[in-house]
């Protein structure tokens, strides 16, 4: 009979290391959430398409709705709840106010590890 204790303990050590990996990979440091920088153009207007809390969670749904409306129905005007009109456009509307894509959109996206492929085709007017 062989003694398998070393093998089993090695297995358990690997298990615990994997299971606790987020703790030691971050090494107990606190890490602040990013604060997206609001561009002067946006602050001047003072309003977004929807209230801030909703924009935070649902802006990608808004964009999806806009895209479908424009591409499928040719309908380019959006009227929000408070009656304001917006031209449904990613580069020409969102980025008209949020002129600082890198400091605004990307800040959150890097933190949340989302990499919207939209920019394969759409442009950031400032980068042009």
């Amino acid at each position: 009979m062989t003694n398998d204790k070393p093998k089993i303990i090695a297995g358990l050590v690997i298990f615990v290391l994997i299971a606790t990996s987020p703790v030691w990979l971050n090494r107990g440091k606190t890490k602040e959430a990013p604060t997206p920088v609001m561009a002067a153009e946006a602050t001047a207007k003072g309003y977004c398409v929807m209230p801030k809390a909703e924009m935070k969670a649902k802006h990608m749904k808004v964009l999806d709705g806009w895209r479908n409306s424009v591409v499928r129905n040719g309908q380019r005007v959006y009227v929000n709840e408070s009656g304001k009109q917006f031209t449904m456009s990613l580069s020409n509307t969102c980025l008209e106010c949020h002129t600082n894509k890198a400091e605004f959109c990307d800040k959150c996206h890097v933190y949340a590890s989302v990499n919207p492929y939209c920019w394969d085709c759409h442009v950031d007017p400032k980068e042009k």
Binding site: A33, A53, A57, K58, C108, Y111
Partner: peptide, 9 residues
């Protein structure tokens, strides 16, 4: 749709 940034915090 939830606030993913808050949840990551």
């Amino acid at each position: 749709r939830v606030d993913v940034v808050a949840i990551k915090q």
